[in-house]
């Protein structure tokens, strides 16, 4: 794996040249992981209900459960995981530098990202919603939209964050923060009139703080969440895909639906028996 570095010269260029195993000559990561005896999963620890710590300091959430599904498929034991806690910024670099076998961290699939890592099959479809304080002067989405530029919306930082908000509220002012708790804090302290973020996160937050907030009743901006692995290892990608796929449609459906119920509060209908749903 060091050939690139040697031939390329270790001078200035090597400073940020992040190397990786070549796909041709070596065995698949699948064999490495099996030989190692546990999965190394990259995820975060600060976003409920996706990946966060319980009061007794255990990592939990829907992303974490996706990793557990893969570990179960590998070893028959969902607990055979070594977690690498990473910030959102570190998701792709940790994959490309082999710090993790795979990452499940509410990663939105985009074309630009798919050029850098290989995405698995999706495991959730997210949309954006608006949340206001329970005593907000604005009754609902229509009132927010009618108020025009006097409304400030707090969102999680993103290049498209402004366009995303403006698609729903064309004139609203947009304030971007880099962590979820701060966008809620902005709403709480009156710095913003509404929060625009993932519907799953909003639902979780409202369930934790009953009667204090209200949903504006409007959803938009679909996006797909998938896990990601390193490019160039089809065997490993295929394995992870199979594990996730069978959790959503096959033998591990109970695992997936139980997790779905825990974190999103909704019951799923089991996949229809007979002709495979994915070809309908």
């Amino acid at each position: 794996m060091n050939t690139t570095i040697r031939t390329g010269g270790m001078l200035a260029a090597s400073v940020f040249l992040l190397l990786s195993t070549s796909a041709y000559s070596e065995a698949s990561k699948l064999d490495d992981v099996l030989a190692r005896g546990h999965l190394v999963l990259g995820t975060g620890s600060t976003n409920a209900p996706w990946h966060f710590k319980s009061a007794d300091d255990k990592l939990q959430g829907f992303d974490v459960d996706m990793g557990r599904i893969v570990a179960k498929a590998l070893f028959g034991d969902p607990d055979k995981i070594e977690y690498v806690i990473q910030s959102s910024d570190a998701r792709i670099p940790n994959i490309t530098t082999d710090k993790v076998d795979m990452t499940c961290q509410f990663m939105t699939v985009t074309g630009e990202r798919a050029q850098q890592v290989a995405f698995t099959v999706p495991y959730y479809r997210e949309g954006v919603g608006l949340m206001m304080k329970g005593d907000s002067p604005y009754a609902d989405y229509a009132a927010l939209k009618a108020a025009g530029s006097s409304v400030t919306v707090s969102v999680l930082q993103n290049v498209y964050a402004e366009d995303m908000v403006h698609a729903a509220l064309p004139e609203a002012a947009v304030d971007q923060y880099d962590s979820v708790d701060l966008i809620y804090q902005a709403l709480e302290s009156g710095r913003s009139d509404a929060v625009a973020t993932d519907q799953s996160s909003l639902a979780w937050y409202m369930a934790q703080n009953p009667n204090r907030y209200k949903d504006a009743g409007y959803g938009w901006n679909p996006q797909t969440y998938a896990c990601a692995v390193k490019r160039g290892d089809q065997d490993w990608l295929n394995f992870v895909n199979t594990a996730l796929h069978e959790a959503m449609t096959g033998v591990e459906f109970d695992f997936y639906s139980k997790s779905f119920k825990t974190w999103f509060g909704k019951d799923l209908l089991p996949p229809e028996i007979g002709f495979p749903v994915e070809f309908k």
């Binding site: 620890s45 409920a48 806690i85 910024d89 708790d181």
Partner: peptide, 24 residues
């Protein structure tokens, strides 16, 4: 160091906040 996942005081604090949302 919280950025690269070292569980020092700030990351620990953020983990707690993400559970109970008592940021300030």
């Amino acid at each position: 160091l919280s950025v690269i996942g070292v569980a020092e005081l700030l990351l620990r604090t953020q983990e707690i906040i993400s559970r109970n949302f008592m940021s300030l």
